[in-house]
């Protein structure tokens, strides 16, 4: 069978997948909106517990990683393989940095006894308990997406290296980039909703 290649179709598929991802998080945003409306004072107090500096740092990290993956596409288009590899490499290390920050952030919270089902949390006001529930659920699901994005970008890294992604066939990199922007975009919404509205 002759190889069927359709870059527009492949990108369309990725966009549709991104719609589903947005709706997946959309369910959580809906729950957030309802409980925020119901317990606005508690959400206000609970959000003070989160470290806005770490959140801001992670935002910057993700924004840089989004920029580098976009630059990698241009590098591949121009046929500059080594630059593309460096840029995807930077994206991957930024992702790792994000996870390290997240690890310490969560670790600190758990150390303080703030985690779903903990004795401390059960004693808090209902709204605060739900806030932390949402915090763990939303950032947890986001971290899972970071993992998936890292796997995709690693595959792309090796495909650039082996020359399978090159100046005339780079739709996989574009799709990987699109996915990574989605992961970034969701964080852009999570950050103010959880950390900044205090």
């Amino acid at each position: 069978m002759e190889e069927h290649r359709d870059d527009v179709g492949a990108r369309m598929g990725m966009w549709i997948f991104i719609f589903t991802e947005l709706l997946l998080f959309g369910g959580l945003f809906l729950v957030y909106a309802i409980f925020r409306n119901q317990y606005s004072d508690n959400f206000h107090t609970a959000a003070h517990e989160l470290n806005a500096f770490v959140g801001a740092l992670n935002t910057v990290i993700l924004l840089i990683s989004s920029a580098t993956v976009a630059m990698a596409i241009t590098a591949v288009q121009k046929g500059n393989k080594s630059l593309a590899l460096i840029l995807v490499g930077i994206t991957l290390s930024m992702a790792l940095l994000f996870l390290i920050n997240k690890y310490f952030e969560w670790g600190h919270k758990i150390h303080l006894g703030i985690y779903p089902g903990s004795e401390l949390l059960i004693k808090l006001e209902h709204g605060e308990l739900l806030f932390f529930g949402l915090y763990y659920f939303m950032t947890g699901l986001h971290v899972f997406h970071i993992f998936v994005g890292m796997v995709i970008l690693s595959v792309i890294f090796f495909k650039i290296k082996s020359g399978k992604i090159h100046a005339t066939d780079y739709v996989l990199l574009e799709n990987g980039g699109l996915y990574w922007h989605l992961v970034d975009l969701i964080w852009i919404f999570l950050f103010p909703l959880l950390y900044l509205i205090t």
Partner: peptide, 19 residues
């Protein structure tokens, strides 16, 4: 995806008392 995330909430509810 909406039912996907909702079912995950049920799992979280059972495993972590997310409330």
């Amino acid at each position: 995806p909406i039912v996907g995330i909702t079912l995950m909430m049920i799992v979280a509810e059972r495993l972590f008392q997310i409330g």
